[in-house]
C-alpha cells in the first residue's frame, strides 16, 4: 500500500495525490487573481495525467464550485458582487447549461463535433486574448495611473447597436445601463461552453463584462465568480445525474489545492493594478491557445481515444 496514491472510483484509475492538489493550487491562484474558474487550463492538464476526458470536465466543474464559493463569499463581504447583473447572467447560464449537456450527447453522435468545438475554442481564446493584451498594453502605456474603470468610452457603432436593444435597465452596482437581453444571451453562451468543455467560462465572461458590459474591474471579478458558482453547480449536478462522470475523490483533492490557491491569489492580486492583471491573463490565454493549436497541428502519438471524450 502506498499512501501517496489514491484510487479514483469514477475515473477508475490511480493517481499520486500531489498531482491533483498541486494542479488545484495553480488554478486556484489564477482564480483568485483573475476571477476565472481555471477550467480551460485544468481540464486538459487532468487529461494529460490520465483522467478520462469526460470525467476530467465534469469533476473540474465540481471543484470550481468550491473555489468560486470561497471567492464569491469574500467578494460579497466587501460589496463587489452585482447580484442583479449576476442573476440575468445566471438565467442565460442555466438555459445554456441544459443545452450544453444535451449538446454533448448530440455532438458525440456526429463526427464533426470535435472540429466545431476546437475551432470555436481556438478562435474564442485567440480573439479574447489578443484583444485583451493589446487593449491593456495601450492602457498601461497611456498612463500608469489610469485604471480600467476609466476606459475610453467613446460610442462605437457596436455600442449604439447594444443601446438600441429593447428592455434597457440600469445596473446600480456596476453603474451601467444595458438591455436585459445582453447578460442573458452572453450568460447562455458561457453556459453552453461550461457544459460542453468543462470550463466555468470565466475567461470569456471577464472580458465580456469589461469590454461589452463596461463594468468596473473590481465588480467584474466578484460577479464573474458568482455566476460561475451557480453555473458549475448546475453542470455538476447534470453531469453526475446524466453522464455519471463526476469523480468525488478527485474533486476533493483538487479543491484542497484550489480553495487555498484562490485565497493566496486574491491576496497577491490586491498588490497588482487592474491593467497588469489583464496583461497576465491575456498572456496565459494566448499561451493556452498556442498549445491547443500545436496539439491540433502535430501528429498525435495515439490515433484512438476512448469514446465519450472530446
Amino acid at each position: 500500500m502506498n499512501l501517496m496514491y489514491l484510487y479514483l472510483p469514477v475515473a477508475l484509475t490511480s493517481i499520486n495525490v500531489l498531482i491533483p492538489v498541486g494542479l488545484g493550487l495553480i488554478v486556484g491562484l489564477l482564480s483568485g487573481l483573475f476571477g476565472v474558474g481555471g477550467g480551460f487550463l485544468l481540464t486538459p492538464l487532468l487529461i494529460m495525467f490520465g483522467i478520462p476526458s469526460t470525467v476530467a470536465a465534469a469533476t473540474d466543474s465540481n471543484q470550481i464550485v468550491a473555489a468560486s464559493t470561497s471567492g464569491t463569499y469574500a467578494h460579497w463581504k466587501v460589496g463587489n458582487v452585482d447580484f442583479k447583473m449576476g442573476l440575468y447572467l445566471l438565467l442565460g447560464g442555466f438555459v445554456g447549461g441544459v443545452l450544453g449537456v444535451q449538446a454533448i450527447k448530440i455532438l458525440e453522435a456526429t463526427g464533426n463535433a470535435d472540429f466545431v468545438i476546437k475551432i470555436t475554442y481556438v478562435l474564442m481564446l485567440g480573439i479574447v486574448g489578443t484583444y485583451m493584451l493589446i487593449e491593456s498594453l495601450i492602457s498601461l502605456r497611456k498612463s500608469g495611473s489610469q485604471a480600467s474603470e476609466n476606459q475610453d468610452r467613446k460610442e462605437s457603432a457596436f455600442t449604439r447597436c447594444l443601446k438600441s436593444l429593447p428592455l434597457q435597465t440600469h445596473f446600480e452596482k456596476s453603474g451601467v445601463t444595458h438591455s436585459l437581453l445582453l447578460p442573458v444571451i452572453f450568460g447562455g453562451f458561457v453556459g453552453i461552453l461550461a457544459a460542453v468543455m468543462g470550463v466555468g467560462g470565466g475567461f470569456l465572461m471577464v472580458p465580456v463584462m469589461v469590454y461589452i458590459l463596461r463594468m468596473p474591474m473590481h465588480v467584474v471579478v466578484g460577479t464573474s465568480l458568482f455566476q460561475i458558482l451557480f453555473n458549475c453547480i448546475e453542470v455538476t449536478f447534470l453531469q453526475a445525474y446524466t453522464n455519471h462522470t463526476v469523480d468525488f475523490v478527485l474533486a476533493v483533492l483538487l479543491l484542497i489545492g484550489s480553495t487555498f490557491g484562490a485565497q493566496i491569489g486574491a491576496a497577491f492580486g490586491r498588490k497588482l493594478k487592474g491593467e497588469q492583471l489583464k496583461v497576465i491573463l491575456a498572456v496565459i490565454v494566448l499561451v493556452v491557445t498556442a498549445k491547443i493549436v500545436f496539439d491540433l497541428a502535430l501528429t498525435p502519438s495515439l490515433l484512438l481515444s476512448q469514446a465519450g471524450g472530446h
Binding site: 464550485v65 463569499y73 469574500a74 466587501v78 471579478v221 492580486g269
Partner: peptide, 29 residues
C-alpha cells in the same frame, strides 16, 4: 442525483470553510 448533490454540498462547504479561515486576510479575489 444523490451523488451529485453530495458532491456539490461538499464543494460549497469546503469553499466556505477556507473562506472563513482566510477571513482575517480579507480574502477578496
Amino acid at each position: 442525483a444523490l451523488y451529485g448533490i453530495i458532491s456539490i454540498l461538499v464543494a460549497i462547504s469546503a469553499g466556505f470553510a477556507v473562506g472563513l479561515i482566510f477571513r482575517q486576510g480579507g480574502g477578496a479575489h
